[in-house]
Each structure stands twice: as structure tokens, then as C-alpha cells.
């Protein structure tokens, strides 16, 4: 948008063209919906008291509007698709080299295992920061086999990693539908209604107990919340990598949840010690002493055992169900 369009167009017309501009004035408590003035005229008409309340002078205000519109424009551009993320090893806390190079592709699941404090968070931070040998581990991250643009580190629209953990809760006072709509609008996603429908359908498929679009997000059960978070992240989050910190085996179909993320072409990194989840991954990174000590590829024998583990899991779930229904477990 050039300067004359931005500053000389009557604001009612401008807001019609670019609805997000209303938010800018709204955040300075200036009502533009009923005014025929342009931004330049409106700024010129602000008196000293009004400017004092805002805490900016006219030139700063003009610059702020310019920056805002440029920033919003940048948000609407799609960035290059991540076809391959490469992690090149650095060294562990004892400065021993890690000596590995790992390519992660969309649709893959990689598990991260290791005790608390072993360096799992640092590995994720390295990915998120697109480390170039300049973090304590000396690792390098490549995107599509090239060094990513350094500017991406600081732009929220290039955030590589979306995170999901057991501790996360919804805190906004919104219904499920309002919540998804707000998320979609903050990202300028087209076809919002279609997105809402898809996310609702997916979340309900993942959750043990169904919920409606009018349910307040804060009153969802743990399983329902997790299901909505996963469906929303899979379908609406721009980040190509999803980090999952355990998924509790309650009220959510974990296998379907992972399948959804894989289908949506996410690279899934999962910190887990749950044997079923661990075997669903193609590979496991073993983290020890701040470094990747080993990379295990899930073997055919392990995969065969997965079926058995799932059978055990089902048995255990049945027993849970019987307890819930007030039965006894004198016979298993």
C-alpha cells in the first residue's frame, strides 16, 4: 500500500478495503467507523491532550500506522514450505562431538527420549532458533538444505515450532467456535467457516466425549482440550513442526491424533516415554548429558511388538471402563 492510499483515503473506505486497519485505531481508542476523514486529517485534528493520552506525537503516530500496515502485509505472505529440516550435531555438555546429521521430513514422527534435564528443551530451542553454531550446543539447523534467513529468527510468522504439552490449558473466555475463528483471523486465513467445521469434526473424532461449537473452551475436559488443541494446531497453525510433550492416555485417541498431524504434513517431534507412542515414531533420539547420544530406528521387531502393546493397552482401557461403570475386577 503506498503512502497516498494509506494516509489520504477516507478511513471508512480504507477500513472497508483493509478491515484490519480498524484494529490499529481501536488500539489507540480512536473511532474511525463514523468519520469521513483520512488518516492524515485525523492525525492533524488530534489536539495536544489527545496526543498526550496516547503518548505519541503526530510523526510517531504516522510511523506507527505505516509500520502496522507493513507488518500486517508481511503476515499475509506465505513463507517457503519446509520440505526438509536438517539437524547437524554439535557437542554435549562435556564438549564431546555429537557427530550426526539428521533429515526430518513432513509427515515423520521422531521421538525424543531421555531423563529430565538431559537437554531435550535445548534441542527444541536450537530448532526454533535455527541455530547456526551460535548456541551452547554448537548445532546447526538447515531448512531445505540451506541456511535459513537470519531475519526469520525474530519474526513471529516464521515460527518453526508449535508446542503442545500436558500442562497447557485454555484460558480465554470464548466458545469453541469463537476461539477457532479468532485464531484463524489472527492469521488471515481464508474460508474461516470451512476451517471451523473441519477442526470441530477432527477434534470430535479424537475426543472420547463429543462437544459442540458453543461449548466454552475453559469447560472442556482434559481429553477434549487436548483433542481441540491438536486439531487446531494441525489445521490452523502455520508452524511446520509440532512438538508434543507426552499425550496422556485419557479421553483422546492418541493414534488418530498423530495420524491427523502426519496427514497435515507436520514434522512431529514427541518427547515421550510411553512405549506405544515411542514405537509409533520412525526414529528415537536418545538425549544424554546435553547431547544426542544415539539415534534408534524403530525396527521391524519393535513394530511387531507394537500390536501386542496396543492389545495390552486396550485390555487396560477396558478395565478402566469397568471401574467407571461400577463393576468389580475380581475376574480380569
Amino acid at each position: 500500500m503506498n503512502s497516498s492510499e494509506l494516509f489520504e483515503t477516507p478511513l471508512t473506505v480504507l477500513v472497508e478495503r483493509y478491515p484490519y486497519i480498524a484494529d490499529f485505531f481501536d488500539s489507540f481508542n480512536i473511532d474511525v467507523r463514523s468519520s469521513d476523514a483520512s488518516a492524515a486529517q485525523l492525525f492533524a485534528a488530534l489536539d495536544a491532550d489527545a496526543l498526550d493520552d496516547i503518548g505519541l506525537d503526530r510523526a510517531q503516530l504516522r510511523q506507527a500506522l505505516r509500520d502496522y500496515v507493513d507488518g500486517m502485509g508481511a503476515l499475509q505472505h506465505d513463507f517457503a514450505k519446509v520440505e526438509c529440516l536438517t539437524i547437524k550435531g554439535g557437542f554435549n555438555k562435556e564438549r564431546q562431538p555429537e557427530d550426526f546429521s539428521l533429515d526430518l521430513l513432513p509427515g515423520q514422527i521422531i521421538c525424543i527420549v531421555g531423563p529430565t534435564g538431559s537437554g531435550k528443551s535445548r534441542l527444541l530451542a536450537d530448532i526454533e532458533w535455527m541455530a547456526q553454531g551460535d548456541t551452547p550446543t554448537g548445532r546447526h539447523i538447515l531448512i531445505n538444505a540451506a541456511v535459513p534467513d537470519a531475519k526469520w529468527r525474530f519474526s513471529i510468522e516464521h515460527k518453526l515450532v508449535a508446542q503442545l504439552s500436558q500442562n497447557m490449558n485454555f484460558v480465554m473466555d470464548l466458545s469453541v467456535e469463537e476461539f477457532i475463528r479468532m485464531h484463524a483471523e489472527s492469521r488471515f486465513v481464508p474460508d474461516v467457516d470451512d476451517k471451523i467445521e473441519r477442526i470441530m469434526a477432527q477434534a470430535n473424532e479424537l475426543a472420547g466425549e463429543g462437544f459442540t461449537a458453543t461449548t466454552p473452551i475453559t469447560s472442556l475436559s482434559g481429553g477434549q482440550s487436548r483433542a481441540l488443541m491438536i486439531a487446531d494446531t494441525a489445521i490452523l497453525s502455520k508452524s511446520p513442526i509440532v512438538l508434543i510433550d507426552e499425550i496422556e492416555n485419557a479421553g483422546i485417541d492418541r493414534k488418530k491424533a498423530l495420524e491427523l498431524l502426519v496427514r497435515e504434513e507436520k514434522i512431529v517431534l514427541m518427547a515421550t516415554h510411553d512405549p506405544i507412542l515411542a514405537l509409533m515414531g520412525q526414529r528415537r533420539l536418545v538425549i544424554r548429558n546435553g547431547g544426542v547420544a544415539k539415534i534408534i530406528t524403530t525396527s521391524a521387531a519393535e513394530r511387531a511388538n507394537l500390536a501386542q502393546l496396543e492389545e495390552l493397552d486396550r485390555k487396560l482401557m477396558n478395565l478402566r471402563q469397568r471401574i467407571r461403570e461400577g463393576e468389580t475386577l475380581e475376574e480380569l
Binding site: S165, M168, N169, V171, S186, S237
Partner: peptide, 9 residues
């Protein structure tokens, strides 16, 4: 770490 990904975004 305690709010959802969507709310962070």
C-alpha cells in the same frame, strides 16, 4: 508453557 498454542499465536 501453560496456555494453548493457538492462544500463544
Amino acid at each position: 508453557d501453560i496456555v494453548s498454542q493457538a492462544e500463544r499465536e
